[in-house]
Simulated scan of single mutants.
Amino acid sequence: MKVDSEELKAVTVILRTSQAIQEVIRKDVAKYGLNPTEFSVLELLYHKGDQPTQMIGKKVLLTSGSITYVVDKLVNKNYVIRKACPKDRRVTHAGLTESGKELMDEIFPKHKIIMEEVFDQLEADELIETVELLKRIGYRAKSL
């Protein structure tokens, strides 16, 4: 009886690849005293500007309790500040402090180079195709 199917092999390869990439990210951001979740929040704020706290969780795939904890840690490190929303007092925004912006100005270009190294075995068209294929798999999995 053949147990392995191409689909099961694909799942194993995708998961192992994801773990390997996450480990590269973990090692990279640890050099700056951050964990991957903290870095993903800083990266979001760096590229998208101030965000409602509840939206940060959705964008970086965290529960509301977890995002509060992560934002608290970043506030304590003086990288993030909480701001009341002028239009809705029930909403709190998070934004980068000057220290947070300076940190990301320093580390993001280096991080980008490391991510480019992860994918440097692929040609540009192969990378685009990989992204499209993974999106299709992800959308299908979400629909099940």
Results as ranks from 00 to 15, higher is better:
Lys77His: 09
Ile114Lys: 15
Pro52Gln: 10
Leu42Cys: 06
Asp4Ile: 04
Ile128Gly: 00
Met115Leu: 14
His93Trp: 15
Asp105Val: 05
Gly100Ser: 07
Ser143Tyr: 05
Ile114Pro: 01
Asp105Phe: 05
Glu126Pro: 02
Glu126Val: 02
Lys87Gly: 06
Ile56Lys: 00
Leu42Gln: 06
Glu132Pro: 00
Tyr46Leu: 09
Glu117Asp: 11
Lys83Gln: 14
Val80Ile: 10
Gly49Pro: 05
Glu38Ile: 04
Val24Asp: 05
Ile137Ser: 11
Arg89Glu: 15
Pro109Cys: 10
Asp88Cys: 10
Thr97Ser: 14
Lys135Leu: 11
Lys58Met: 13
Ser5Pro: 03
Ile21Met: 09
His47Arg: 15
Asp72Ser: 14
Asp50Trp: 06
Asp88Leu: 08
Val70Glu: 04
Pro52Arg: 07
Gly138Tyr: 11
Leu134Tyr: 11
Thr63Ser: 15
Lys48Asn: 09
Ala94Gly: 05
Ala94Gln: 03
Val29Phe: 08
Ser143Leu: 09
Met115Thr: 06
Gly33Trp: 09
Lys9Thr: 09
Glu38Asp: 01
Thr97Asp: 07
Ser66Ala: 13
Lys9Arg: 12
Lys110Thr: 08
Lys48Pro: 00
Asp4Ala: 08
Leu62Asp: 04
Arg82Trp: 05
Ile21Thr: 07
Glu23Ser: 13
Asp4Gln: 04
Ile21Gly: 03
Lys73Leu: 08
His111Leu: 10
Val41Ala: 06
Asp125Thr: 13
Lys2Arg: 13
Ile128Asp: 07
Pro52Ala: 14
Val118Gln: 04
Gly49Met: 09
Asp120His: 13
Ala30Ile: 03
Met55Phe: 11
Ile21Ala: 12
Ser5Thr: 15
Ala124Asn: 04
Lys9Cys: 02
Ile25Trp: 01
Lys59Pro: 00
Leu103Gly: 02
Val91Pro: 06
Phe119Val: 13
Ser64Thr: 11
Asp4Pro: 01
Leu45Phe: 07
Val60His: 04
Glu132Ile: 07
Lys101Trp: 03
Arg26Phe: 12
Cys85Met: 08
Val24Glu: 11
His47Pro: 01
Leu34Ser: 06
Phe108Gly: 01
Glu129Arg: 08
Glu6Ser: 11
Asp72Pro: 04
Val41His: 02
Glu102Met: 08
Leu62Glu: 12
Asp4Gly: 00
Thr53Ile: 15
Asn76Trp: 02
Val29Gln: 07
Met1Lys: 11
Val41Asn: 01
Ser99Val: 02
Lys27Asn: 13
Ala84Pro: 02
Lys9Ala: 08
Tyr69His: 08
Lys2Ala: 14
Arg82Lys: 14
Lys142Asp: 10
Pro36Ile: 08
Tyr46Asn: 07
Lys87His: 13
Gly57Thr: 07
Glu43Thr: 02
Gly100Gln: 04
Thr130Pro: 00
Asn35Phe: 06
Met1Trp: 09
Tyr79Cys: 02
Val60Asn: 05
Thr92Leu: 14
Glu43His: 12
Val41Trp: 02
Gln19Cys: 00
Ile81Leu: 12
Leu42Val: 08
Val3Trp: 10
Pro86Gly: 05
Lys48Gln: 12
Arg82Ile: 08
Arg136Phe: 02
Ala141Tyr: 14
Glu129Phe: 01
His93Asp: 08
Asp125Asn: 12
Thr63Phe: 03
Pro109Ala: 11
Val71Leu: 05
Ala84Thr: 11
Phe108Gln: 08
Glu126Asn: 03
Lys48Thr: 09
Leu45Met: 07
Glu116Arg: 14
His47Tyr: 13
Ile113Leu: 14
Glu43Leu: 13
